[in-house]
Every structure is written in structure tokens, then in C-alpha cells.
Design a protein around this nucleic acid. Structure first.
Ligand code: ZN
Ligand code: ZN
Ligand code: ZN
Ligand code: ZN
Lengths: 677, 677
DNA sequence: GGAGGTCAAGGGTACC
DNA sequence: GGTACCCTTGACCTCC
């Protein structure tokens, strides 16, 4: 009753506050016109299984992220070499150094191995990231394709650090240029189209319509080549889906594909097709090959290792390496410099760690924590000035200048907050609750060591979809929680995805959120099914197909008292199902490399074997496998396994040398099969 | 070995890309001078934990939105009565008929009662909104203060509709005048302060400290009332948990609570408590009652009920109810519209069920299932084009156009997947295993009945920072989306703010963007933390502070054969944690109004209680709270709660009269604490 | 133990 | 460039 009431309450709550209605996600996908921001329509399936989409107005072709509709894209041009379109917000985000491209894993701290954001572009075949790096883009460490690099040169961001060229040297910083949407920038994109040599096709599409093929020439690394090759990709995806109105030819790139500079000699059309259209050379400049990375200049931010992923740490345990020469003056701020005009700069001006070398900020936090009860007792007795908490923290820090807030001798809410000290690890400014949780200042600086209690010899299961750590058997295969939820949401809401590439996106842990279509496709291919309920539905189906004895449906009364018992109900189901199975289709009984073998029962076996092989491969403990196998053999659920499948499974186990007591398995199996083994 | 290599590869790959360090945002916050729009300086943390800010120039004090700094505000004067300053951007927005004040929810159609945009101005004491209305301002129907009204008259906007005066009649249209910044306009702001009438308490909280009690007067509607009653709400929530310092008197409202106009005679303190505090009259004028919100127009989407949750159903057995009149044409898409230019749209273009009424999709699936063996034999012999499976499905469906994938004649993984057809029941795209289980298409198309049981009387949650409508628990407290994002950005990027005032800025919905410093300070004070990963980091911290027993790390070998068992491992972790917690810090065990109580375990409890009280206050169902409490008590995660906190929590629950079976809670608690209760 | 629900975290992006 | 709204995601939880 309680969940019922809760449920009803929640529903009414959601219904009541219509604003909260969108809390339930995905019911209606409103689409935002990219430029205007207007909501253009609902994309939904209205009635029955016939997907009906509210037809969009003709002049409002768009997609959700604003990449697809060419009408809302900004043309840009750089000389004759670079010319193209991209969405305005994309450019804006690039310009403002925000993260572009597909977002990373939302729930994760550890950002792992992302690649060029141009993977948003439709062609996945072409985005092998280069090994160039771009400094200055926030928070997504990607390996940009060369098109990205070119675009970055277009953006006037003088504060951005210069490009890093991986192997050899620092490239010249890009000359700040005024970027206007329609202005043809006089880039110094000199077209060195000489000696391209071997075209190593590391082409990366930039937008939906363009790709840059960066030639990877095996040449001395000191040689500079600035050429790039622009490839035009027709916008087939859009016209395909939205039918974009008149023909769907991208209005961008008014100029004919004149490969300015004569790079055509070196450029050969790639053997692949992008959206079914062969790329077309329109210009560009070349890129030198990239050697393995040089040790980069130490950024002003210290990067730490967190969970196997390098993250940026603001406060580091050891003194930073000497700053590079080109960096702006990183002189430690004297208190006067930071508080020179601080008549209302609220807190005390002593920067705690300004002189000491900050031995360990977390240690400091721990110290603070230990002495929490003594030094920060209660606020009612009298405020402890923030400077008073100093002595534990820094040796030279607690000069206590200007203690307390500037003017207001008010209540505790008037306590000032020195944010620099806060980020430096001074938790005494926080109320007691946060002192320990500490705003999770370790957000970006997770401990590098990760003691990892040493019983993790067990390598975890890995997801069959994305290679993440799996949590078990979900919907038929071993998946992680993410893929499980993704599959569930997809089927539950009948979402329709499209791949902006050609449908062969790689699904890894880092990339699984890039393409929903390909992720779901892989789910299907790997055999995810909604079982559970399926068995019931299947029962109904088969019973209906048999003779229709239960056609009256739910109106009938149940004779036997059905207390829900998982074992008995399961037993009943399986015996029944086995009957059904024996009735029809011996053709399903075959070995597991045959496709039709995959009826659900046998498919369970296959999955188990899969687990087995997988785990053996990654050197999991055999004992775990044996447990799984024991379960598979002895549990009532799998008791109806065909003998052949069982035998093959056992054979698989035998093949593993680490396996120990196969005899017991044999015994148990033979017991289950009346000694037929 | 394979995952090892993969892992190592990933780590090295990520380590390589550490140059992208500045990708993490917010290293340098550029600030824009309000008038000129120029970037004034960089504000960044340079090295390590010692923040160094590039000092701004002296003559360039500013804030982000240009509201706070009086240097950039425009003085204007209206006779001797009205005189003040406002920011230039506000005037500009007014002039251009943009929405001023808080922007509306973009995803919402129904705009809800926002307040006077003058809440953006620095003086909060002066913006009691009048009941005049202004038509012609887009997208925000607010109640402007008289200052706004005068300002509107200043604006030469002939296209704007005339003012709307609430009760009676249309005011005269404002005479178009040339607006200049320093011109003194002759306004005729008359103050009607007569006869307020009976106060019916439909109090709407206005800001955090002020509430406007709208008088429901039993009087002829033609009667004019201009009074307002301002009610001050103490911020007890904060002081209760965090002990807020000296009494927690809100710093706002510098003036004494002079109820301007003598409205106090009519005002009685409301019987309800807002966030646990009884509102307190401080002044203001009255409001006409607000009519209940008009029923929202029926969405154009057909909503189905799936599992008790309303979802959008793409396929449903019966034809949908007739679409509402206001909806756009929900005509079913003709096949041409969805697939007209599909040279590489992967699958065949015929929408299967576009014409038939889809008698039952499960029947279709059953049909497919029965004929499975014949039509989908094996993939090795040759791929069956997806269109070939059609004839069973839909009558007009199987035209089989464009079968197969576009270009790639590759392996089976390149097979495309038409998801709309999939949801339409075309199972032939699935591999053999899933064809029988059929992805359980019956999942999401449960009968849409559930006609919205009408139990809605729930007030929405309000943000603890700015009193905006909250959307849930974010970072520990109940906040709106804006404050959530603000806190996230701040902590994520470690931004450093300063307050150009004295650090006691009032944070309301309208003013929250005026001072980032004070907003973040309030976030801190209210107890926002980045939880989640905190506990793990905290454990690590404390363990490190303890003795560092695991310093040897991963080198040690495990003696006992550890069969992987999730339950035991989980148990072990928690018992370990419990031991640890019992080892140290009894001093943390105290009631929740004590400051030091807030260790993280207890803090969880506090949050629960907070939610509890909040939800009780806004009349949520106790049953939901009980679930939360049950979770807190019974789940293994919170098993280590100190007994005092548990007791106080239970006491809190006991205080709620609606609570039913406290006994079970006691039992479970005592079971967890060895009968000590 | 898996299916399914929950909901906070975070990303994208329009708008200012 | 910040803000905030909307959406997806996935870790965690409950139920059966
Ligand atoms: Zn996965
Ligand atoms: Zn894809
Ligand atoms: Zn808020
Ligand atoms: Zn302030």
C-alpha cells in the first residue's frame, strides 16, 4: 500500500506542478530550432505502432543539436582553403573555449579517453584523431582531427596557448584574427601542397558536410607543411530524415570546389564514402606528420592522477616544476596585490599557503578535521575569525591581518569567505557540515594512490557492449549499469535514434554516449532482450497459438492458490516452456556458433559460456566461473538445458587448464540428466 | 591480460593528453565591463593552491551583469518623487521590449506569476510590486512596482499596448516620449493607500525573506486596493542546521518594518509555516487574489500510461483520442515525408504500419514468431534484406524499397537498423535470438487508461538559496536548477568571486545573479556539498590520517581463496566502516542543531530530516518521508548512524501526526543498534 | 539476482 | 561569457 500511495502521490505531484512534468524524461521530445531557440514541434509517435511525427514546418528543418540543419549554420571561410559551415553555437562554444561535442559520462568524475569532438560529425570512418593536441579547450581532452586544428586557428583567442605539435616543437601561436561569420579571413594558410607523398587517410570530418583529410606524410618532422585538404560532404543525413525542403543541398560553401593551390595532385579521393557521397576536394592546407608527443610545458595547473585518469588539480602535494618561460608571470600573489583595493574585500587577506610549499592539502584537510571540535566549536559563543584557524594550516600564513569582515559586525551569516583560501584547502571557512565533506575539494584531485584494498585480484566482469565494468546479467547479456539502463530506456520509450555517421561507431566505455543508435544496435546484436516479462508474454503467445484455451483472458478465476513463489513459478514456467520447446523446432538445437541456436534457453548457456570464456581470458578466478557454471547446471532455471549445450560448455571448461574439479561438474550434470553422460 | 593492456593503454593515452589541461574550464574568468562590453581582466588562479588574481584597474569596478556597480548605472529622475538609478542593460531591455527580470522557463508554456523586474535593482526595500499590470512586455507578466510603471512611460514604444490596471479599467496609453537617460519626467505616481480589507491568506512567498500576502477581500471587484503586506520569513532552516551564527536575522530590510499604509490592521499571521517559520508582517501592500491557473492545453502528444508513469506511447492498440484543436496537425507521416531522399538511409523506406490501424502489435509479433523458421533462416547464407520480412507485418508495408545497407557490404555488424520499423513490430531486423523474445514490445504500450486521479494540492518546493522553484535535491539541499548549476560551475572551475558590496547581499530569485560571491556564500552556508564521491574520498582521507596501514598497497598477496561474493564484500565494507566510525569521534555524535554533528553519516540524516520537514511543510505525503526514513534506517548504507541522530530523526517523525507505524521503525532501529533503543 | 524505478549529476545550448 | 532549462545518464535502490 505504501508504494502505491507513494506512487500516486508522485504522479499527482508531477501532474500538479506542470513545470515538474518534464522531470519524466523523454515523453515528448521538443526540438529547439537552433538559431532562434524556438520550440518547433514535438517529435513523437502519436498513435499505435505507426510512428507519426508531427511534421515540421518546411522552413524549419533542424535537429536537436543544431548540427544537421544547414540553414542555421554559419558559413565561414579562411582564404580559399577553408570554407564551410558549422553551427553558431558550436563556433561560439569553441570560441569561448567551452566543451564541444558529445558530452562525457555524466555521472563520472573520471573522464576517460575521449577522442576528437569531431566524432560528432557524420562520418565515423574518418575521424581518426590526430595526435596533435590543443591547449585551451576546456575539459574535454580530445585528440582533434586536423579540421579541428584548422578551425582553431580561425578563432581569435589570443589567450589560448599555442598549439602543441606532438613530436617536435611548439608551433607558432596562431595569429589572432578577427573572426567574423562571413568575412573571408586572410589566413596565412599557405598551401604547401608539395610532396604530400603517402596519403595516410586520417580524414576527419568537421561538420556534417565537411571533412578534412590530413595527410600523414612520412617525412622529416622538421619539415613544415600547412596544407589541408577540405572535403565536402553532402548533407544526406538531413535530407534523409527531415527531408529538409528543397533538395537539401547544403547552402553553405557557395564557392565551387576549386582546390586552391593545386593540392589535387596529391589528394586522392578516399575510398570511403561519407554519407554515401564521396568526399570532394575543395581546398585546404597540409599538415606535417606528428611525432610522438613531447613533454609539454607544465601548465599552470597541476594535473593529477585520479582513478587512472589524469585530472587537473589546483593544489598539489609537491611543489610544481618550474614554470615555463613563456607562461605569464606566475609570481605568488603578495597579499597586497590581491587585496589592494579591498575596502570591501571581505575576508582577511592572508593567503594561507602563500609562502609554504603546501605539503599536502589533503593532509591539511585531515588536520583540520581532527581538530575540528576544538577550534570551531560553535558560532554562538563568538565568532572565530578566519585568521585564527591558521596555525594548524600554514606556518607563515597566520599573520592575521585584517581579521574579520571589513565593516559589518553582524551575525554569523556575515562571515566572509575567502574563496581563494577555500580552494586552497582552507576548510575552516565552511560550516561544520562541509568541513568534512569539504565541498569535495577532491573533486578534481582524487587521491592518486587509491589503496584499493588488495583483494581486487578479481578482475571485474566487463560489459559486452561497452567494456565497462559489468554488474551482472542484464537483459540477457553481461552489461554494465549504463548499458542496462540505456537499453531499458530505449525499449521502454521506443526511442528512435539515428547515427550521424555510417552506423559503425565504436562503442566503448568512453565512447558509448557518442552514438545512441550504434549503442543500441550493438545491444541488439549482442543479444539483449527484455526477458522476464518476455517469458510471460511468450507463454501467452504460445498458449494462444496452441489452441486458445485461455482465450477468456483475465476474467477467469484461478483455482489453485497462487502465492507467489519464485522457485515454483519458475519451475512451472520452465517445464511448460520445455514442453513447448520440445514440441517445435529441434532445429534450434545446435551448437552455439550457429545462429539459430539462440533460442532463449540455449542462449542462456551461451551467455554462460561467454562469461566463462571472457573470464578465463581475463584471468578471473576459476572458482567464480565454477560458481557460475554450478549455478547454470544445478539451478532449476537451467535444468532444461539440452545435453549438447551442456556438453559443449563442459568441454569449454575442460579446455581451461586452470579448471580443477571438472568431475564434480560431470557428476552434477549427469545427475541432472539421469546419468546419460 | 587483455584488459590489463587495455587499461595500461588507456592510462598512458590519457597521461599523454595532459596538455589539454586548460580544457578544464574556468582557469581564467574574463569579466566584461557592463557598458563597454570590453573584457576587463582575467581572474585566475595561477599556480598551485595559491590563488593569484590579476588585479583589476581602479576605475573599473563592475559586476557581471552590471547591476551592482553604481558607476555604470543610469540615473534618472521623475520630478521629486521618483529618482533613482537603474542599470543600462535593464533600460535597454525595457526599451527593446525584451523580457526583463527573470527569464521564463524556456521549456514551459505556462508562465507563472513572476514579480516586478525591479527586484533586479539594488534596493529591495523599494520594490513592492503594485497590482498594476503591464501588457506588452513579452513573456513575463509581472507586477511592476511604481518605479517600473514610470519607467515604462518613459520608453517610447508606441507599439506597446497600454497599461493594464488591475481592477478596473484600461489606463490611458502612455504618451510616447523621447527617452533620454537624464531627462526628468513628470510622472503622476499617486499613492492609493486606502481600505485594504479582509486578508485572506493566500500567501505567496516572494523572496527568501519576504512574502506577499495576497488579500482575498470579500469586496466588489471594482474596488481598488493598492496595499501590500510584506511578510518576513525567518530563515530557520538554515539556522537550525547550521546554527547560522548570531540569531540568523536576515540582513535584508534595512528599514524598520513600517507597514506603509496601515495594512497591519488587517493582517493576521498565517496559520501555516513557511519552511518551518511563521511569516511575520513587515509591511507591504495587498494583492488581489490570483485566479487559479487555467488548465493547460492538452498536449499534442498522446500520453500513455506505462507502469504507472505517463509516457509517450509510440504505438497503441486503439486509435488515439482526437487531438486537441490547438495542436498542430498530427497527420500520420506519409512514407514519402520520412524517407524521400534516402539514398543511404539504411533500411527500406516503407513505414510498415502507416496505413493499417495496427490491430495488435503483439499479434504481429506472434505471427512473425510462428513463421520464424521459414523466413529468417540464417545470416550466413545471405542476408535477408530487412524489407523482405515485411509481408507478414503490414498489408501495404512490404514494398521492399532500398533493401540492405547503403554502401558497406561488410559483416553483419554493418547491418543497419531501422528503429521506427523496429518499434512498429518489424522483428526481422533482430538477430534470431531476439526475434522470438521480440524485445518485449508489449512493454511500453500498456493501456493508457489512468485518468489522472485528481489529488493535487502540492505546493512546489522552493530553493533554499534563492527561493525559486526547486527541482529537487541538489548537492545536498533543495535548490533550483540555477543554483545547482551555479554551485557546480563554481566548484568545478574553482572560481573566485568577490562582492563589491559588503558581503551580505540578499539572494533572491530576482537578485541571485547580482552577486556571485554572496550567492556562493549562501550556498556554502546552506550546506551545499559535492557529495557522492565524497564518502569515498573521505574514507581515504581518514584512513590516511589514521595509520596508513595499507601503505604497501597492491603488492601484497591474498591468502585465503576469495570467491567473489558481492554480499559478503559489501558486508565487509560496511562493517569496516562501522568499526572505523566507532573508533573515533564520539564528539561528533550530537543532535542536529550542533555544528559539529555534521559528519557525513549524520549529515545524510540531516538531509533526510531536512527533506522531511520541508516536505511536511509543503504538505507532501508522509508516506514518502517514511520511505526515505526507512531507507536511512534499514539500508546497509546508513546502518552506522549514531543512535542519537536516529533518535532525533524518529522524534521528528513522531512529531508528524500523520505518521502511522512508528513501532516498526523503532523495531528496525533497535535491531540495528542491539536493542539499545 | 535481475528487472525496473529513482533521481542527482552533468552536458548542451539558447539566451542574455 | 555566464545562466538556467531541459535532457540523458547511470549508480543505487526496491521488489519480486
Ligand atoms: Zn556497457
Ligand atoms: Zn553511430
Ligand atoms: Zn535557487
Ligand atoms: Zn555580495
Amino acid at each position: 500500500m505504501f508504494p502505491d500511495r507513494l506512487h500516486r502521490f508522485k504522479k499527482s505531484f508531477l501532474r500538479e506542478s506542470s513545470t515538474v512534468a518534464p522531470l519524466i524524461q523523454g515523453h515528448q521530445s521538443r526540438f529547439v530550432e537552433p538559431f532562434t531557440g524556438k520550440y518547433c514541434g514535438y517529435k513523437h509517435i502519436v498513435s499505435g505502432s505507426r510512428g507519426a511525427r508531427v511534421p515540421y514546418e518546411r522552413d524549419r528543418t533542424f535537429t536537436r543539436d543544431g548540427f544537421s540543419s544547414s540553414r542555421h549554420q554559419i558559413k565561414f571561410q579562411c582564404g580559399a582553403a577553408l570554407r564551410g559551415t558549422c553551427s553558431s553555437s558550436f563556433l561560439g562554444n569553441l570560441k569561448s573555449q567551452r566543451s564541444v561535442g558529445q558530452r562525457d559520462h555524466p555521472g563520472r568524475r573520471s573522464v576517460s579517453l575521449t577522442s576528437c569532438p569531431r566524432h560528432d560529425c557524420p562520418d565515423t570512418e574518418l575521424h581518426r584523431p590526430t595526435d596533435r593536441r590543443i591547449q585551451g579547450l576546456p575539459r574535454s581532452r580530445f585528440f582533434p582531427c586536423s579540421f579541428c586544428l584548422v578551425l582553431f586557428r580561425l578563432l581569435p583567442s589570443p589567450s589560448r596557448p599555442p598549439f602543441y605539435e606532438s613530436g617536435d616543437r611548439l608551433a607558432k601561436p596562431p595569429r589572432p584574427q578577427e573572426f567574423r561569420k562571413d568575412a573571408s579571413v586572410t589566413g596565412e594558410a599557405k598551401d604547401h601542397h608539395h610532396h604530400l607523398g603517402l596519403l595516410d587517410l586520417t580524414a576527419h570530418i568537421y561538420t556534417k558536410f565537411f571533412a578534412v583529410v590530413a595527410p600523414m606524410v612520412a617525412s622529416p618532422p622538421s619539415e613544415r607543411r600547412d596544407g589541408e585538404v577540405l572535403v565536402r560532404i553532402k548533407d544526406e543525413q538531413v535530407s534523409l530524415i527531415f527531408d529538409g525542403g528543397g533538395g537539401g543541398a547544403p547552402p553553405a560553401g557557395g564557392g565551387p570546389p576549386t582546390s586552391a593551390g593545386g593540392g589535387t595532385n596529391y589528394w586522392a579521393p578516399p575510398p570511403i564514402r561519407i554519407n554515401g557521397v564521396r568526399p570532394e576536394l575543395i581546398g585546404g592546407d597540409m599538415r606535417p606528420p606528428l611525432a610522438p608527443t613531447t613533454p609539454r610545458q607544465t601548465p599552470t595547473v597541476i594535473m593529477g592522477e585520479a582513478g587512472g585518469v589524469r585530472t587537473m588539480v589546483w593544489s598539489q602535494p609537491e611543489p610544481p616544476p618550474p614554470p615555463p618561460t613563456s607562461a605569464p608571470s606566475t609570481s605568488l600573489p603578495s597579499p597586497s596585490s590581491s587585496t589592494s583595493s579591498s575596502s570591501n574585500w571581505p575576508s582577511s587577506t592572508t593567503v594561507i599557503a602563500s609562502n609554504q610549499q603546501s605539503p599536502n592539502q589533503e593532509e591539511t584537510a585531515a588536520q583540520l578535521l581532527l581538530t575540528l571540535g576544538q577550534e570551531c566549536v560553535s558560532n554562538t559563543n563568538g565568532r572565530t575569525t578566519p585568521g585564527d584557524g591558521g596555525p594548524l594550516v600554514g606556518g607563515g600564513g597566520g599573520s592575521g591581518a585584517g581579521g574579520g569582515t571589513s565593516g559589518a559586525g553582524g551575525p554569523g551569516s556575515c562571515r566572509s569567505l575567502n574563496m581563494e583560501r577555500l580552494w586552497a584547502g582552507d576548510l575552516s571557512q565552511l560550516p561544520g557540515a562541509q568541513q568534512i565533506t569539504a565541498l569535495n575539494l577532491s573533486w578534481a584531485k582524487q587521491p592518486p594512490a587509491q589503496p584499493q584494498d588488495p583483494e581486487e585480484d578479481e578482475q571485474p566482469m566487463i560489459c559486452m557492449i561497452c567494456e565497462d565494468k559489468a554488474t551482472g546479467l542484464h537483459y540477457g547479456i553481461i552489461t554494465c549499469e549504463g548499458c542496462k539502463g540505456f537499453f531499458k530506456r530505449t525499449v521502454q520509450n521506443r526511442r528512435v535514434y539515428t547515427c550521424v555517421a555510417d552506423g559503425v561507431c565504436e562503442i566503448t566505455k568512453a565512447q558509448r554516449n557518442r552514438c545512441q543508435y550504434c549503442r543500441f544496435k550493438k545491444c541488439i546484436e549482442q543479444g539483449m532482450v527484455l526477458q522476464g516479462k518476455v517469458q510471460k508474454a511468450q507463454e501467452i503467445l504460445t498458449e494462444r497459438a496452441d489452441e486458445g484455451r485461455n482465450a477468456t483472458g483475465k476474467g477467469e478465476t484461478v483455482d489453485e492458490p497462487r502465492t507467489w513463489d519464485p522457485t515454483t513459478s519458475r519451475q512451472r514456467n520452465y517445464s511448460q516452456d520445455c514442453t513447448y520447446q520440445s514440441q517445435r523446432s529441434e532445429r534450434f538445437f545446435c551448437y552455439f556458433h550457429v545462429r539459430e541456436v539462440c533460442r532463449s534457453r540455449i542462449y542462456q548457456i551461451l551467455k554462460i559460456i561467454l562469461i566463462l570464456k571472457l573470464k578465463l581470458t581475463i584471468k578471473l578466478k576459476v572458482v567464480y566461473l565454477r560458481q557460475r557454471l554450478d549455478n547454470a547446471v544445478s539451478s532449476s532455471r537451467d535444468r532444461t538445458l539440452p545435453i549438447d549445450a551442456t556438453l559443449s560448455m563442459i568441454q569449454t571448461l575442460i579446455d581451461c587448464d586452470e579448471f580443477q574439479d571438472i568431475a564434480t561438474l560431470r557428476v552434477s550434470v549427469s545427475k541432472n540428466y539421469n546419468g546419460r553422460i
